[in-house]
């Protein structure tokens, strides 16, 4: 126990010297404990910067099967008291993602709590693609579409993923990388 305390105190001292923030420490822990399904991968554009990275998702079932979706994670110094900021970098037809890439996921907004980990956020994102939620829409047209008919919605998603139009909007081709 004493050793642990000494170690903990030692860690505190060395991190103070390197000026590693509490947020960075926690992010580091979350990243080491990450256990993602084979459908998800992280990518660090700058390996020195663990607070900004991308997450790739390739759903293997559901409406969005076959798509390559990229999210940008930006974590600020108030983490884990504030949630990471997550944006979808592709323009996609999805009830919970608007055309600017803002993502509506409860745990990224009103239901965030600091005991949630980056892993839980990423799993939450994947869940949005397996089961889009028409009850809490950011893209109202897509939500109404899904509510009316799952089959029509599925056809629209398929078309949008090929880089096609749904209504007046043209979407990104996410089937090719």
């Amino acid at each position: 126990m004493k050793q642990q305390q000494a170690k903990a105190a030692g860690e505190g001292a060395s991190t103070a010297a390197k000026k590693v923030t509490a947020a960075q420490l926690r992010v580091q822990k979350d990243l080491t404990e990450l256990s993602l399904p084979p459908t998800m991968h992280t990518h660090f554009a700058d390996p020195e910067d663990i607070m900004n990275f991308q997450v790739f998702l390739q759903p293997d079932e559901g409406f969005y099967v076959g798509a390559h979706i990229t999210f940008e994670f930006a974590i600020n110094l108030n983490f884990p008291h504030e949630p990471p900021k997550v944006k979808c970098l592709n323009k996609i037809y999805h009830p919970n993602i608007d055309l600017q890439g803002n993502v509506c996921l409860n745990i990224l907004r009103e239901d965030w709590k600091p005991v949630l980990s980056l892993n839980s956020v990423m799993i939450g994102l994947q869940y949005l693609f397996l089961e889009p939620n028409a009850g809490d829409p950011l893209n109202k047209e897509a939500a109404m579409d899904l509510q009316k008919s799952r089959a029509t919605f599925a056809a629209h998603v398929k078309n949008s993923m090929r880089g096609g139009y749904v209504g007046p909007e043209k979407f990104d081709d996410v089937l090719r990388r």
Partner: peptide
């Protein structure tokens, strides 16, 4: 601690000594 994920016998991130 569920918030900082550090052992309770360690300190929170802003303290040095438990």
């Amino acid at each position: 601690c569920g918030i900082c994920r550090v052992h309770f016998d360690g300190t929170c991130p802003s303290c040095k000594y438990p």
